[in-house]
Structure formats: C-alpha cells, structure tokens
Design a protein around this nucleic acid. Sequence first.
DNA 1: AGTAAATGACTGAACGGTCAGTCATTTGAG
DNA 2: CTCAAATGACTGACCGTTCAGTCATTTACT
Lengths: 191, 191
Amino acid sequence: MNTNDKRERILTAAIDLFYEVGLDNGSIADIAEKAQVAKGTVYLYFSSKEQLIEAAFWQCHRHDVEACQAGLDRIESAIGKLERRMENVVRWALNNPKEIRMERMYFSSPKFGQGSRYQQQFLQFEPVDTIIRQGIARGEIKDLPSSLLGEMFFGIGAAALNYVVDVPDALEDENFWRACRESVAGCLKPL
Amino acid sequence: MNTNDKRERILTAAIDLFYEVGLDNGSIADIAEKAQVAKGTVYLYFSSKEQLIEAAFWQCHRHDVEACQAGLDRIESAIGKLERRMENVVRWALNNPKEIRMERMYFSSPKFGQGSRYQQQFLQFEPVDTIIRQGIARGEIKDLPSSLLGEMFFGIGAAALNYVVDVPDALEDENFWRACRESVAGCLKPL
DNA sequence: AGTAAATGACTGAACGGTCAGTCATTTGAG
DNA sequence: CTCAAATGACTGACCGTTCAGTCATTTACT
C-alpha cells in the first residue's frame, strides 16, 4: 500500500460520500472511515476539507473531459467531432453518476468563482472552443461567438444526459442519437 | 407587521444567504439576523432547517415558472411560444440570480430525489410538455418523445442563461436572440 | 550479515468552535 | 387582564483540525 494508493482512496471515498449527502454534509470522519484510513491521515494529503473538495472536483472534471476526447482526432468535420463528443459524454456520464454529480454540485455552488464561466480554467471549454473555431473558419459552423455556440453545445449535452438518466434504454435507441445529432447540427450549422 | 410578512422575510433572507454561502453553510442564526427576527421565530414558520430550504427552493421555482409564462397565450405557434418562453427565462434569470442559484443548487444536490426528473413534480415541465405535444400534433415539431425534446429545450435555455451571465450585453444583441431562436427551431422542427 | 538508529507515514484522542433546535420568559394587541 | 406571538439564552451533539505518540521500514555502521 503505497502513498498514492491512500490519496486515491480518500478521493474516491469523498466522491462517494458527497454523492450521497452533498458537498457540505459529508464529514471528514465519514470519509476517513469509507477510505479505511484514520482521520488524521486525510490531513497528510489534503490541507483542509475545502481543499479536499476542490481536489475531488478537479479529479472528476479531468476524468470527464478525458473520456470526452476519445476518438475525436479520427474525425474530420467539426460537426462530426462534436457529435462524437456528445456521444462520449452521455455514455461516460451514465457510467459515472457520482463524478457527474460532483461536477454539478461544485459548479452550482458558491465555492466556484462568480466570474466568467468560459474564461475560467475549465478543461472542457478549450478543446470544444478549438473545434468550433475551426468549424467557423471552414464555413461548417455559423459565424457567432464561439463561447455562445460552445454554451449551446454543452447545454444540449447536459440535456441529453438528463434524459438518459431517466430513460437508460435510450442508449440503444437510434432515434435518441439522431435527435442528439440533429440538435447539435440545428444549433451550429449555418442556415 | 403581520404573520405573512415575517415568513416572507425569513424566506428572502434564506435565499440571500444561500446565494452567498451555499445550501448547507448558512446557519439559522444568520438567516434570522438577516430577516431581523429572532432565531426562535424561524421555527414558528418552518419546522426545521431542511423544511426551510425546501420552502425556499419551491418559492424560487414558482417565481421562475410564473415569470416564464408571461405572454405565451398570445402566441399561436408552438415554436413561437417556446422562443418567447426562452426569452422570458433569460431576462428573468439575469434579474434574479439568487433565485436561479437556489434552484440550481437544490437541483444538483442529493436533497432532491434521484428519481425521474421529468416525472417529478417540477412545475416547469408540464406547461412546456403541453406546448410540445400540441406542436407535434400539428406537425410543427418533430415526432419524438416530448420529454426528450423538453430536455433539449431546457438545455438550450440553461445555456443561453449561462452565456448572458458572462455577457450581459447580449440582451441587446439581435445576433444573440437570433442564435437562441435558431437553436430552438434547430432542435425541434422536423427536418 | 547483524543490529542499532533514524525516519516519517499513520493513528486517534482531544480541543475549540459551531449550530440546530428548545423552552422559559417577555411583549403587545385587543 | 389574557393569551398568542416573539424572543434569545441555553443545550447537547457534531465536526474540522491538531498533535503527541506508535511502529513498520529504511539507513548506516560494525
């Protein structure tokens, strides 16, 4: 059992617990117990509860964004890339509800800066922004601020995700995927 | 100062405080102070902190949905109604950031049942569902589950809202509104 | 190889502080 | 005066954080 193993276990336990009771109700004692570690050990790896929450968020966000990138570079068109990215996020989220909830809770809480979403260092924005800008340059995507189109794209993704949580069978339903693709295209393609 | 006045002030103070510190970090003592009321008084109107949080959420949600309905009945087409509803929510949200945050925090927290979003008694779903079903019946909207299309519609709304928080000037920008309308149409209209 | 010394990861009891909820008392309207 | 509404001091539970002590492992010396 090396050092990284414990850090990992604490993070996992935290994400588990936060999923069940929310960001602020999970106590360090409970997290330590879940991680099979002493309370004090938590403070060897994280300087405060606040920092542990942050670390848990960033771990989830990193995993999420990583999973979303799968296979994108093998696709040529911008719209195609975005359609694929959407499929990635939906499939990943359904298998990782705890991490998604962690992201959403942190996102909507005042812990996260009031400032500009798009300009904040979220990992998700940059890659999508690049794809959209390329699409605009090639005339594949309408010429509007890429931050606006990016938000629309993420909005549709979140919506699709909300839907499959209720209707998991949608993953096998070609109509669902068609609706996703048509929505992305409908928002982004020039008229 | 009648009874309802105090209840109202407590709710408002709670929403204020939760905006600043999150759902679980606002203490009853702070809420009471903000409302210029004694701590004990809070418990005359709400049986527990949990119940106060719930009441605050529902108040915000009711206000939100009410504001979104403005002017809808004077519009004929389903798409037109939805475009107008989107404009309503964006304008309202920008003027009521505290209530929007309250909704989002409650929404993403485990306090809210894990169950089906769409089937839960959110007030927002039913009216939009009705509009979408009518649109489908008239051939104005593509024939897919209205719950899926409803999610897409709400997703675009949330996205537009996220954007205007960063770029409030967008409210005066015809391009922004055009993008909103085109996105709604792009998601919902039959090909 | 054998062993004593040094290390530092880990533990969990203890502390100071906070907070939800209670209830005996006060206030004030009729 | 009467009594319902309002108050705020109080309580007991809980929680984040600290830190003195433990012990398995590594180092270094003979």
